[in-house]
Amino acid sequence: MATANTRVSSIGRRARGTSSGRPLTLGTQILLQLICLFLAFTVLYPIAWVVSRSIDPSTLNRPTSLLPEGATLDAYRAVLTQPTTNPVSFARLALNTILLAGGVTVFALAIAVSAAYAFSRLKFPGRAQLMLGVLGVLMLPAVAGIAPLFVLLNRIVIGGFNLRNSLFGVGLAMTSGALPFAIWNLKGYLDTIPKELEEAATIDGATRNQTFLRIVLPLATPVLAVTAFLVFLGGWTEFYLSWQFLTEPKNFTLSMALYNMVGQYAGQTPWSRFTAMALIIALPVAVVYLALQKYIVGGLTVGGVKG
């Protein structure tokens, strides 16, 4: 720890914003450590509880200790074969969720990035009105657009195939909300890329398309990654559209299966399977979030401060 601290302070980050150069007395240090430990306890307790329940061999009896006797991975095995009473395998649920979240991400981003570029760099009649339209949609929470999407998609029936009752239909409904978000997020970042680079390229004879593809897109890689992740995260844990639209178990997603497990009263919840499922869903996105955290929070604050 000591070396880490000196390294940080040597680049001048740690020292800024601290109250003063006065050294901490041992009493103050202990008091602050106690507060920090208490906070760490409150943060870790629910997480520790979830982990301990997921390896608990007993499913219903009252859990008392955080370290269950006879810890086992049975719950994970059970969840990975058949998570709920619905006739659908975990692999199918995961595949549906990945297709849904991944499809929406690729589709929304491909469309959004060129629109964001136009909003950020080009002057054209109707720009202000269109941006206002995107912002207005962004302001409305996705839940509040569910009635017309449900009704309209339900009308599209080809043979026995009802668009509403399909992953494709849910994907379209999700894109409806993801697209304005992606456009706005990307535009905010493109605004911060200096125009001089593009002007230099134009002088060198590059066309608008070449500038966009060869200069702007590579520079926007971090924000593309973050936006893609945030859209994917939204799709990964999407609940209300899938729950409203889908009726056939073969189309169900991971979050629907998780909700099916919660039950009305906790007495009915299969504790170890539920917690194992929660961890399986949370872990992959949590790891990616941790890796991208710096960029995500940076985007939030830049967007917030610069308005």
Partner: peptide, 17 residues
């Protein structure tokens, strides 16, 4: 550049609203 977004949003965002 806006065309794809306008088309898609027109159909699945603005029309439903």
């Amino acid at each position: 550049y806006l065309l794809p977004a306008l088309l898609v949003m027109g159909i699945i965002t603005f029309y439903p609203l």
